[in-house]
Computed example of a mutant assay.
Amino acid sequence: MTLDRYMLRLWLGPFFGGLVFVLAVMLLARALKLLGTVSDTAEAWSLIVDLLALTMPFFLLQIVPMAFFLSLQNTITGLQQSSEMDVLRGSGLSYGRMFRVFFIVVPLLWLGLTYIAMVQLPQGQLGFNNILAKIYAMKGAISFAPQRFTRGLDGITVYVDGEDSEGTYHGLILEDHRGGVSVIYTAKSARFDMGGEYLLLKLKDGVRLEGEGADQRMLAFDRYQVSIALPAGNRKILHSNDHVTMMTVPELWHAMHNSQSGAAVAEWNRRLLMPTTTLVLLFFALPLSLTQKRSGKAGSMIGGIALLVMVYNLQLLLYQQVNQGGFPGWSMWMGQALLLFTGMFLSKRAEADRLPKLFSYIGEWIYLLHQAVINRLSRRWNADQA
C-alpha cells in the first residue's frame, strides 16, 4: 500500500497540472473564437461564460485521457531516470505490481467519463446550440438593409442610410407606433445590442418627436436608448431530439433502432467508446516510457504525443465512416480493440524485458535529433551574443 500511495502521489500532481493547463488553453482559444460571435451584444462576457461552461463536458472527454496518459508517462520516466525503477525491479517487483494502483484509477475515470459522455455531453450541446441560436436570431432581427424601410419588428419601422464595418448604423430614422402614438427618432448613428429578451437601440446625436400638430413635442439628445422586446417567434427553441448530438440516452437508443440512422449509430458508439480510451492508453504507457536513460523524458513524451494523435485520428476516421453509412457501428470498436490488444502485447513484452528493438532505435533517434536541435540553437545564441 505504501508503494501504491507513492505512485499515486507522483502521478496526481502532473495529472491535475496538465489537466488544468490544457483545459485553460482550450477554453481560452474557444473564448477568443466566441468573442467574435457575441462581441456586439450587451451580455458578451456573460454569454461567453455560459457557452464555455456548456463546452466543458466535450473538453473533459478529450483532455482527461490525454492528461492521464502523459502524466503516467512522466511518472514512469521519472522513476527510470532516477534509477528508482532499477531498485524496485532488483527487489523482485514486477512492473504490474509497481503500477497496479492505476488499474483502480482507470475504472474510476471510465465511470466518470461515461457519465459525462452519456448525460452531460448532450445537455451541454443542447444548451450551447440554443444560446447560439438566440444570438443569431437577435442578429438577424436587427439587420437592416441600407436606404430601405424595414418592418422587421412589430410596431417598429426603421430606415438607415448605411452601416459601417463595426456594425454601427448611420443616418437612422425610427418610427415607434407600439403605444398607439407615433414616436419618431432620428439620429446620426445608432447601434443595436442585446439585453436579455430585449433589443437595446442606442442612439447618438439625434431628435425625438412625439405627437402630432400642436401637441407635438421635440427632444434633442446626445445619447438616447430605446428598448424593444424581441418577439418569441424570432427565435426557434431547439430540443434534444433535433439532432443526435443533443439526444438523451433513451432518445438516441430509439433513433438508433427505429430509424437505422448512421448518425445515431455513430453517436451512440462514440459516447460509449471515448471513455475506454484511458484503458487503451494505460497499456501503452509502460512500453513507450522505457527508453534509454540518456534520452531523458523527451523521447518517451514525443512518442506518447504521436500515439495520441494516431488514436484520436483513428477514432475520428471510423466515426465519420459510420456516420456516413460506409462502415457498420462495430467497426469503431474493432479499431479500439486493435489498439488495446497492441498495447497489451507491448506491455507484456515490456514486463519480460523483451521490447522490440524498434523502440530502442526510435528513442535513440529522438535523442540524437533533440541534441542536434539543442546544439544548433546554442551555436546560434552564441553567434548572436558575439
Score class of each variant (00 low, 15 high):
67 A>E: 04
78 G>T: 09
48 I>D: 01
66 M>H: 11
50 D>I: 05
75 T>R: 10
64 V>C: 00
56 M>H: 02
69 F>P: 03
63 I>L: 14
69 F>C: 03
47 L>V: 00
64 V>M: 00
68 F>K: 05
79 L>M: 15
47 L>C: 00
61 L>E: 01
66 M>S: 14
51 L>W: 01
50 D>Y: 03
56 M>S: 03
53 A>G: 14
48 I>F: 01
78 G>H: 09
68 F>V: 07
59 F>W: 12
50 D>W: 04
48 I>P: 03
80 Q>W: 12
65 P>T: 08
61 L>C: 07
55 T>D: 12
52 L>F: 02
72 L>E: 03
72 L>N: 06
53 A>F: 14
60 L>V: 14
47 L>A: 00
47 L>K: 00
55 T>F: 01
65 P>A: 11
81 Q>A: 14
77 T>W: 05
58 F>Y: 12
79 L>R: 08
72 L>G: 05
77 T>I: 15
78 G>C: 07
62 Q>C: 10
78 G>N: 13
78 G>F: 07
72 L>K: 04
79 L>N: 08
57 P>M: 08
65 P>Q: 11
78 G>S: 13
49 V>C: 07
70 L>R: 01
67 A>L: 04
69 F>A: 01
71 S>E: 02
54 L>S: 11
58 F>A: 15
52 L>W: 01
60 L>R: 10
57 P>A: 08
51 L>D: 06
66 M>Q: 13
60 L>E: 11
67 A>T: 09
79 L>F: 06
73 Q>G: 15
62 Q>D: 03
64 V>Q: 00
55 T>I: 02
61 L>P: 04
66 M>W: 13
78 G>R: 12
65 P>G: 12
77 T>L: 13
70 L>T: 02
55 T>V: 05
80 Q>H: 15
81 Q>P: 09
71 S>R: 03
76 I>G: 08
81 Q>I: 15
77 T>Q: 11
71 S>M: 04
80 Q>D: 13
81 Q>L: 14
79 L>I: 06
64 V>K: 00
60 L>M: 15
78 G>K: 09
52 L>M: 05
59 F>G: 06
68 F>C: 09
50 D>Q: 14
72 L>Y: 05
63 I>S: 11
59 F>Y: 14
71 S>A: 13
62 Q>T: 12
61 L>M: 11
58 F>C: 07
65 P>W: 04
72 L>H: 09
70 L>F: 07
52 L>R: 02
56 M>L: 15
57 P>K: 05
76 I>Q: 04
51 L>Q: 05
67 A>W: 01
69 F>Q: 01
69 F>R: 01
60 L>Y: 08
